[in-house]
Write a protein that binds this DNA or RNA. Structure first.
Lengths: 218, 218
DNA sequence: TTGGTTTAACTAACCGGTTAGTTAAATATA
DNA sequence: TATATTTAACTAACCGGTTAGTTAAACCAA
């Protein structure tokens, strides 16, 4: 009983590894089996086909992603100067803890694989849509109260996600271009976090306010 | 003579198409040949192997990308309120005109394919490094002159690129989530451009300045 | 307890089809 | 003729998926 459970889980784990590393087309069933320490036929014993296995992996990935994004908006939207840093921090930490997600998405997003398209749609309807409208509400309220400038909530979500995801989507290029700076990734991400929050709150143009922006750096 | 040139070019063109659509692993040599209206053996006549063909395609893609990013900083950095909208506009227009670039990058970036890693490094040394330090100079000057707040130039590049690239990297997901809004892509990108410029210049927090920010919307 | 039966988990060998890459001959061109 | 293109036919390796058969534990009747 413990053994049968573990073989299926081992296959799922190694399948995720291989699909992340090599993509759908590059993934080989015999490599998935090898890494799981199982016979190739066992994959077909637990999953019907390569497509079936891939679908279960990618569905889990999208569930993780939408859930994490949804969790960002569960905090009450009181003071933007506190909430926005919190959102950025939670999201960056999630991406750091689950590097396979941006990697998998970046790889399979443009593949045109109908499995990917279908799963995106299903999981969004299942989890994403609700979280999204919730954020729209919270954000519009903050605008009405004058806590933030009058901006489009959808575009603002895209802005936050774009700023956060950029490093993780382009990591291989970034690491080539700024080799020395990327040596200590944990520190790099701290700097990145500060820079993102600073831009989101204050923008680039100088401010004449009494409260000096504290997180600007050089 | 005209014919030999054209067959080689036809192969390169169709190879780009197929590599963009299907990725390195998904691309089939016979499909590349078919689309070029040539026999499969012609590919091996002009290019030694699949790797060789792929390398020449991806090298051209990275050259286009680095050149375009380099061109963003050639404008003299005078008034940020004029320059930053110009940078964003030129970059978004380039991405719109060359959709294969973010698509190809998104697909092959995390592949670990050693060809990709080597070409990134070579093309960056060839084109990218110089453009990069040039922007650092321009930007630091603007900070010294008090035209913009004291922010890190590298992080600011990442911010601008992240904001601009997000839509193009995540287009398939975005289109699923906001179906209706994405019907007219040209208009969507205009809204996106305004939102990016607005964030870069003014941030989210309210401003007490006399000059009201004009591009805020909704 | 004993010996037979069922069942889930597993394996080695195999199959049909596909793929990157080759070759040698034919054709066009100069 | 000599050289540059183009082609059909081919191969060796590979890949997703199947099959026939094994193992060992659980179950069950006498």
């Amino acid at each position: 009983m413990a053994e049968q459970e573990s073989t299926r889980e081992k296959i799922k784990a190694s399948a995720q590894e291989v699909f992340v590393e090599r993509g759908y087309d590059g993934a080989r069933m015999h490599e998935i089996a090898e890494r799981a320490g199982a016979n190739k036929a066992m994959i077909y014993y637990y999953f019907r086909s390569k497509d079936d296995l891939f679908e279960s992996i990618i569905r889990e990935t999208f569930r993780e992603m939408f859930t994490s994004i949804g969790n960002l908006w569960t905090v009450p939207f009181t003071e933007p100067i506190e909430i926005i840093p919190a959102i950025v921090r939670v999201h960056l930490q999630f991406l750091y803890d689950h590097p396979h997600i941006p990697q998998m998405l970046g790889r399979e997003m443009h593949s045109g694989n109908p499995i990917v398209a279908r799963v995106i749609h299903q999981v969004f309807e299942e989890i994403g849509r609700e979280n999204l409208s919730r954020f729209g509400q919270l954000f519009s309220n903050a605008v009405k109260l004058g806590k933030i400038r009058s901006v489009d909530p959808v575009q603002t979500i895209w802005n936050i996600l774009g700023l956060n995801l950029f490093y993780f989507f382009t990591k291989p290029v970034i690491k080539t271009m700024w080799k020395t700076q990327c040596a200590d990734e944990k520190k790099l991400l701290q700097i990145r976090e500060q820079a993102i929050v600073d831009l989101l709150l204050y923008g680039l143009l100088p401010r004449q306010e009494s409260k000096k922006s504290s997180t600007a750096q050089k």
